[in-house]
């Protein structure tokens, strides 16, 4: 029953993302004259595919934001509070779906898809596999600290929450009016020299130009890091000896009390004999 509810929730989330996605991936078209100044050979070869300028403000979008924020926070709380590991992983998946939708609202469409693929797809499958290996609910999920420790920890968290919210709410955006409106299109060099192509903010092409331009070195470093992580994970998770799995619980033969008593009696007898 719970599993059915979870699946239903996930399907509803997916449907909602599907419903709002086309309204979100929007770029603000710039007049071609703005691009032309300075260089006479420059011309715009391609307009942004979505130029209908739908913006993600208004009450409906605010309601969607609150809904997905609730899904995110609820999933995160589910992770932290559940004793059943599978339930925690499912809460995590729901949390990631909510985060993905929030990324869409930030016009980060590529990152939203990556979030779904990498986190909700790959990493959570990894977690589910490990849960299958462990498959043992905790005896006592929460660390038993004293009343003073709990009070101190709670106070610290409340202080952190208040402080963070107080600070973040004061963040001054450079241009408050663009807070949630569609961002301006990104201008990239076109296919031929002297042309400019406009692509959506946060699209694959825009992110790719940044990733393979200024971020090329980091990209290569990340590939090396992933290779090292894969080799390291195999090296750590592999048993040290071939038969270690069978010996992980050392074999203690059951005590044979009769034989021990006989041996003790024999020892006593022999020592007594010597005395």
């Amino acid at each position: 029953m719970k599993v059915l509810l979870l699946i239903l929730t996930m399907l509803l989330t997916l449907g909602a993302i599907d419903a709002i996605a086309p309204q979100l991936a929007v770029a603000d078209p710039i007049p071609a004259q703005a691009v032309n100044k300075g260089r006479t050979t420059t011309k715009v070869v391609k307009r942004s595919p979505h130029s209908d300028k739908i913006e993600s403000n208004g009450k409906g979008m605010a309601l969607l934001f609150w809904a997905f924020a609730a899904a995110t926070i609820g999933g995160a709380l589910f992770v932290v509070t559940r004793r059943n590991l599978i339930a925690a992983v499912m809460g995590m998946v729901g949390c990631f779906l909510g985060i993905s939708a929030v990324y869409m609202m930030l016009y980060a469409s590529f990152l939203a898809v990556i979030q779904m693929l990498v986190y909700a797809g790959a990493i959570m499958v990894l977690f589910v596999f490990v849960v299958m290996i462990l498959n043992r609910p905790e005896d006592e999920p929460v660390a038993p600290t004293g009343r003073a420790g709990k009070a101190l920890g709670g106070l610290a968290i409340v202080y952190l929450v208040g402080r963070l919210i107080f600070m973040l709410m004061k963040v001054q955006p450079p241009n408050p009016l663009t807070a949630i409106n569609a961002p301006a299109a990104v201008e990239l060099p076109g296919d031929t020299v002297g042309t400019i192509e406009r692509v959506d903010w946060g699209s694959v092409k825009a992110v790719g130009w940044d990733l393979f331009g200024p971020g090329l070195f980091v990209f290569e470093a990340i590939s090396l890091l992933l290779l090292i992580a894969v080799v390291g994970a195999i090296a750590i998770a592999r048993p040290l000896h071939e038969d270690q799995d069978n010996q992980s619980e050392p074999f203690h033969p059951p005590r044979d009390e009769a034989a021990e008593a006989a041996a003790a009696a024999a020892a006593a007898a022999s020592s007594g004999g010597h005395a």
Binding site: L164, L168, P173
Partner: peptide
Amino acid sequence: FNVGYGHFLVLAAVL
């Protein structure tokens, strides 16, 4: 009803 940058930042902080 006026979702701005602060909302996203606070959501991230709570997470």
